[in-house]
């Protein structure tokens, strides 16, 4: 029996448009029966926080300010032409009006199709966060070596 196809994505960006790319690829691959592993690190952790809005999260004053400024999934900026956070709202409206899946719909589809979410242990500590600061869909908190082992034998992308 042949092994299942596998796609692993290192999700470093916390940008709205790049998150759309991550979840479009992930849900599309999972829909055609790929094993999909998403490894969220640094700014990418903002996408997986339980608190989707701006909150002072984490241990230590600097970490709390960082997490407040990052803003959570509801405040992901566009990588270009962000216009102070207005553009992601306009972009979401545009996507809805053109019957294109929004970030929330893509995220939900990825969850429903069994995409695996992993959090980078080092980045989690840098930002002063803990496992329970993230959504329950997170399968595990990993280091690089374990992620490399998981992604072995498949395709790996960095976004």
């Amino acid at each position: 029996m042949s092994e299942k196809n596998k796609l692993s994505i290192i999700c470093m960006s916390g940008d709205f448009d790049k998150a759309i790319a991550v979840f479009t690829l992930a849900s599309g691959a999972a829909a055609v029966n790929y094993e999909v592993n998403l490894f969220f690190t640094f700014w990418g952790l903002d996408i997986l926080k339980n608190e989707r809005g701006r909150r002072f999260l984490g241990k230590g004053i600097l970490a709390r300010f960082f997490n407040f400024l990052l803003g959570g999934r509801n405040n992901l900026p566009l990588s270009r032409l962000n216009f102070g956070g207005l553009s992601p709202l306009l972009m979401t409206g545009l996507m809805k009006s053109r019957n294109v899946a929004t970030l929330t719909e893509l995220y939900d589809a990825a969850v429903a199709l069994g995409v695996n979410f992993y959090v980078c242990e080092m980045a989690m500590h840098v930002l002063g966060l803990e496992r329970n600061d993230f959504v329950p869909e997170v399968k595990d908190v990993l280091g690089v070596a374990t992620f490399l082992e998981l992604s072995k034998g498949g395709q790996t992308l960095f976004i």
Partner: peptide
């Protein structure tokens, strides 16, 4: 995304 939406329904 069309296939993703279809697949989610097919699973039911």
């Amino acid at each position: 995304m069309t296939f993703v939406k279809t697949k989610l329904k097919l699973e039911l």
